[in-house]
């Protein structure tokens, strides 16, 4: 079964991030430029938060955000992460349970990538298709 490491191999592993003092507008502009749904907030090499389109829409709805406030004020501080050796299925379970679309990948203390729900689903579909294919092949060869 594939691990997070396998996912990162197929993926351009650039991690887009802002710092806690970047403004909300800086973060949104980066997300728009890179066509991504969330950015990490990183300080001195450590992840201190994550900020997503959803977080922005929710904060705007309750009137608690300004485009010029630091992203530190609106980010989600408790960030779940996964490690390179974890299975893709365990990532899917975490994302589904917590309703996350993005998970940073930490190797020790080092940030090595971010995986999205799209990456995870694509891999799971592929694995299931391969399993189906090999079971069908087995039946053709051995049982018909």
């Amino acid at each position: 079964m594939a691990t997070v490491k396998d996912l990162l191999k197929d993926k351009y592993t650039q991690v887009w991030y802002v710092t806690p003092t970047s403004t909300v507008l800086d973060a949104l502009k980066l997300m728009a430029e890179q066509k991504i749904g969330a950015v990490l907030v990183v300080e001195a090499g450590k992840i201190v938060g994550i900020f997503s389109e959803r977080d922005f829409a929710r904060k705007a709805a309750d009137g608690s955000v300004s485009l010029h406030s630091p992203v530190n004020d609106v980010m989600v501080g408790a960030v779940y992460y996964v490690t390179p050796d974890q299975s893709v299925e365990s990532c899917m379970a975490l994302m589904t349970a917590k309703r996350f679309r993005h998970l940073p990948v930490l190797d020790g203390n080092k940030l090595v990538g971010v995986i999205s729900i799209g990456d995870v689903v694509r891999q799971l579909m592929l694995e299931k298709d391969m399993t189906i294919q090999s079971l069908e092949d087995y039946i053709w060869v051995h049982m018909i």
Binding site: A60, V65, L67
Partner: peptide, 16 residues
């Protein structure tokens, strides 16, 4: 949510 985030960035306004 995506439409909102993109337009807010482009117009530099909350557009509320």
């Amino acid at each position: 949510e995506r439409d909102y985030a993109r337009y807010a960035a482009q117009r530099e306004s909350l557009l509320l």
